[in-house]
Amino acid sequence: MFEISPAEWTAILLSLRVAVIATLVATPFGIALAWLLARREFWGKSVLDALVHLPLVLPPVVTGYLLLLTFGRRGLVGAWLADNLGIVFAFRWTGAALACGIMSFPLLVRPIRLSIEAIDRRLEQASSTLGAAPWQVFATVTLPLALPGVLAGMVLGFAKAIGEFGATITFVSNIPGETQTISTAIYSLIQTPDGDAAAGRLVLISIVIAMGALIASEWFARRATRRLHGN
């Protein structure tokens, strides 16, 4: 029962790779957006805010289809990237990473934004009177104080990415060894006769990963509070 088959291992490792890459690539964008939303007032801010949260409320199949239209071989961006940079997303694991990155983006941004909002802006003022240019204020005060929030966001984003299903299967399909992640593998297995045991193992593994991520995220959030109080 607890013997994990090579095919299952392939799906697990691919899921991990997809989620790790998606999280690492999305994080700098997430930090930049969280900072913008937390610290700046500008025209169109509420539209941008809604846009960031869109993948959370849109049916995943819609997000996946939109990705297919944009980043597919004949998509506007996809064709350009393939012709000029040789980057192909359609039906590749990179496409799965793109889908996961976009689907998990709202969960990544939110804790970062909250932790930046919680930072006393007067500390940033103090920093500037001590000679820190705006980028130095960000690098030496804002970012270090928001770091636990950044880590919490990364963990949540990672957990979401590893469980992503709808957008992934719509955009890059369900190809074993290339785009088949834990979720899409479970979907295939429960449609196959005698697939129950294998599906059960993968279900168990995804529960363990999700629980671990939630606990880690909570732990980072508690550290954030301690850090802000200077103990």
Partner: peptide
């Protein structure tokens, strides 16, 4: 500006 500022609430960096 190279103007130092001591605030009423100190504002030391907690981290």
């Amino acid at each position: 500006r190279r103007i130092g500022y001591v605030f009423q609430d100190a504002r030391l960096f907690p981290h």
